[in-house]
C-alpha cells in the first residue's frame, strides 16, 4: 500500500483530490480514464498543450481544470 507521504493534494475541477507524487498530467488523465485527445487542461490558470501532458509534473496544491466539449447552443 502506498503511504500518505507519497501523495500530494491538488484541486481538480474544484474538488480536493489526493494523487500520487510524481504524477504527470498524462498520468492523471489515465488514472481518471480520460482520453487525452478529448480533454483540455488548465493548470493554475494556464492552458497546457497536449504535447506537454507527459512532461509536466503535478505539484502539491496545484489547481487543475479538466474541460471538454458538451452540448450547447
Amino acid at each position: 500500500m502506498v503511504s500518505e507521504s507519497n501523495k500530494i493534494q491538488a484541486k481538480i475541477n474544484g474538488e480536493n483530490r489526493k494523487i500520487s507524487k510524481g504524477f504527470s498530467i498524462f498520468d492523471l488523465l489515465e488514472s481518471l480514464d480520460l482520453n487525452p485527445l478529448l480533454v483540455v487542461v488548465e493548470l493554475n490558470a494556464v492552458i497546457i498543450s497536449k504535447e506537454r501532458f507527459g512532461e509536466i509534473e503535478i505539484c502539491d496544491r496545484d489547481q487543475i481544470e479538466l474541460v471538454h466539449f458538451v452540448g450547447g447552443g
Binding site: N35, H68, V70
Partner: peptide
C-alpha cells in the same frame, strides 16, 4: 454545430463529452 466548454464530471463516464 455549436458546442459548449464545461468541466468534466470526474465521477461519470467520458461518454458525456460531445466528441464521443
Amino acid at each position: 454545430v455549436t458546442v459548449a466548454v464545461r468541466r468534466i464530471d470526474l465521477d461519470r463516464s467520458q461518454e458525456e463529452g460531445i466528441l464521443f
